[in-house]
């Protein structure tokens, strides 16, 4: 079992001497940033998708499957991001987060609960002392269409409410028009506003359209200090896909090779089944490396995934499916 703490301690094991000069140089000004991002190796779409599809054929059975299910549960950011959210709904989620399956107390708690900033306080009260994180979206989620002041105020609100993780969105409009400096600065400003809270940067890969853009945005976020890079808001289709997650896992792997720091990845949206979740864990293991198989460095942004994981977990223990009525609907 990944017993590693499910809290949100800064997941860095920084090497002495700081980042290598080419990285400090990269974020010096707009021109060098553009030069750095455009010099990243290109991505061949066909080859990437073929590799992702081949890895998805890995057959995970028996002990490996049981391990993977528990690991996946501990990596879930149990999410509700609806206009209709109420404090009651959030309490239902926090209860589920603490004890996902009441009949099996050995089920690990989830990684975090993810809510809108105005409800972060509710989750913080409920989860105090449990070690489960409270993630709050911020920065005019999901579109990011507002000014800097509003985005920072949004972040401050979540942090004051006690959120331990902030899920921000990047300014895709600025990114797509090539104003990388603006995107970088904004992430840095939000990072500063986060204080001790962990920053996850949502790239909204469905709007970036190409894998080359995903790679550039990943490096941009890493340069700006993101603790995690996250695929999607869940509000745009396509949300997380395996090939996009491959690109982001390559980015954190290469970042580690350069700096010695471990940064995390969070695919979000559209991951509903255990089978899908296991395919992501296989990708983590074989693309980034086994070191990333911890909730400190890999999370799933999901809501319905947890119940499927619980049902599959029971199936592994009892040999038969229990049915949707035997897990709680929240």
């Amino acid at each position: 079992m990944p017993s590693g703490s499910t809290t949100t301690a800064q997941a860095t094991d920084a090497v002495s001497g700081g980042p290598p000069p080419e990285l400090t140089e990269a974020s010096r000004d707009e021109t060098s940033l553009r030069r750095f991002l455009h010099a990243l190796p290109g991505i061949d779409q066909v080859g990437l998708e073929q590799r992702a599809a081949t890895l998805a054929t890995r057959s995970v059975k028996k002990d490996a499957k049981r391990w993977a299910i528990d690991a996946a549960i501990s990596m879930v950011d149990l999410t509700t991001l609806e206009g209709a959210d109420t404090p009651g709904k959030v309490r239902a989620l926090t209860a589920k987060a603490r004890r996902p399956d009441p009949e099996y107390p050995d089920v690990p708690p989830v990684g975090a609960v993810c809510v809108y900033p105005d409800l972060a306080g509710v989750a913080v009260r409920d989860l105090a002392g449990t070690g489960i994180g409270v993630a709050s979206v911020a920065t005019a989620f999901p579109s990011g269409r507002s000014n800097r002041q509003v985005k920072l105020a949004d972040t401050a609100m979540a942090v004051e409410a006690g959120a331990t993780e902030i899920d921000m969105v990047i300014d895709r409009g600025a990114f797509l028009t090539g104003r990388y400096g603006l995107v970088l600065e904004e992430i840095q400003a939000v990072k500063a506003a986060c204080g001790d809270a962990h920053l996850k940067v949502i790239l909204e890969t469905g709007e970036l359209a190409t894998y080359d853009n995903v790679r550039r945005a990943s490096w941009l976020a890493l340069l700006a200090g993101a603790d995690f890079i996250k695929t999607s808001t869940g509000k745009v289709s396509p949300a997380a896909t395996l090939p996009v997650t491959h690109v982001m896992l390559q980015a954190v792997r290469d970042w580690h090779a350069l700096t010695g720091e471990h940064r995390g990845v969070k695919p979000a949206g559209g991951i509903r089944g255990t089978k899908d979740a296991i395919r992501y864990l296989v990708a983590v293991r074989e693309v980034a490396g086994p070191a990333w198989l911890t909730p400190r460095l890999f999370r799933f942004g999901a809501s319905s995934l947890l119940n499927d994981l619980l049902m599959q977990r029971r199936r592994q223990l009892t040999g038969h499916y229990s049915g949707a009525d035997y897990v709680s609907v929240d």
């Binding site: 590693g4 995970v60 059975k61 028996k62 490996a64 499957k65 864990l281 293991r285 086994p290 198989l293």
Partner: peptide, 12 residues
Amino acid sequence: MSETPFEYAPAP
């Protein structure tokens, strides 16, 4: 990190 690494069980 985990004690048990994610080793694939035989799947013949």
